[in-house]
Simulated assay, not measured.
Amino acid sequence: MTISLNWLKEIIDIPYTIEELDYTLTMLGLEVEKIHKSGNEFQGFVIGKVLTKEKHPDADKLSVCQVFDGKEERQIICGAPNVDAGQTIVVALPGAKVPHGGFEIAKRKIRGIESHGMICSQAELGIGEDSGGIWILPDNATVGMTLAQYLGLDDTIIEIGITPNRADCLSHIGIAREIAARTGGTLRIPSTQLTEDSTLTINTDITIELHNPT
């Protein structure tokens, strides 16, 4: 059973460190097999803003961009045809490893001008197939936020070995219920509402035809 710590916290308050939660779940008969962070493949990737764009003086297809990464302004040489000032983009900082290709970003000179990072496309990030230009984000994306946070991947994943007699724990709510029993906390079970349409019957959407009724 794979559990998202972020989702679990939406259902029950957890007054434990991750190590304490590991121990508590195991003592409740829910053996924790593995704990790992998600979004690790996007370490060193942040949301940035292109402040200015100038033509590279020694390369027709390159642009010299000044980019703000949430902490500082940095110069990045970009070869994408769609890069422009004012765009919100994904920046790979020096030291980051690009998921598609596996190469590490480093400060280096490109045609005599220093570049301190890379502006990324979806294909380079491994989250899409568009390699024709950089990934332009909505203007309301928060500059300085990590890419893992932006994608909702900044999470801790807990893998639990559920025994056959504990089918009640095959859900986040089931695990949260066990924690609530230990801590005395209050469950916040998501509300659901189903609207029945009396005009629909089984024959409305499904028809069965027997081709060989023997």
Rank of each mutant, 00 (worst) to 15 (best):
G101S: 01
H211W: 07
I127S: 06
T163F: 09
S191Y: 12
D84L: 12
T207W: 11
L93N: 08
L51Q: 14
N203G: 12
I113V: 13
K55A: 15
S115D: 01
E72A: 10
V64M: 00
A106W: 09
G79D: 08
Y150K: 09
L194I: 13
I208H: 10
P57Q: 13
I76M: 08
R166P: 00
Q66F: 07
A92N: 04
T201E: 08
G48H: 05
L125K: 00
K97P: 00
V90T: 06
P164F: 06
I12C: 03
A181V: 07
E33D: 12
T88A: 06
N82P: 03
L200T: 06
I105T: 01
L125V: 00
D154N: 15
G101Q: 02
I89E: 01
T186E: 15
L194R: 13
L200F: 06
Y23W: 12
I12T: 01
V91G: 03
G174Y: 02
I127E: 06
M1W: 04
Y150C: 14
K49G: 09
G185T: 06
K97Y: 08
D168A: 08
L170E: 04
A180E: 05
S191T: 14
V90Q: 07
I127V: 10
T192G: 11
L62H: 01
E129K: 15
I158Y: 07
L137V: 10
E196T: 14
Y16R: 12
G126C: 02
P57A: 14
T52Q: 11
R177H: 08
A181N: 12
V98T: 05
I3C: 02
E33S: 11
H36F: 15
M1S: 08
K37F: 09
R108E: 12
Y150D: 09
G126A: 00
S115C: 08
K9V: 07
G126Q: 00
I175R: 08
T88Y: 03
D58A: 13
G184E: 10
T17C: 06
I18R: 09
L28W: 08
G79Y: 10
G44Q: 11
E129S: 15
A141S: 15
E20C: 09
L28S: 11
V50Q: 03
L210T: 05
G117P: 09
P57H: 14
T195H: 15
K71Y: 09
E72P: 03
K97C: 09
P15N: 12
Q43S: 15
D69E: 07
K49N: 14
A59W: 04
L30S: 07
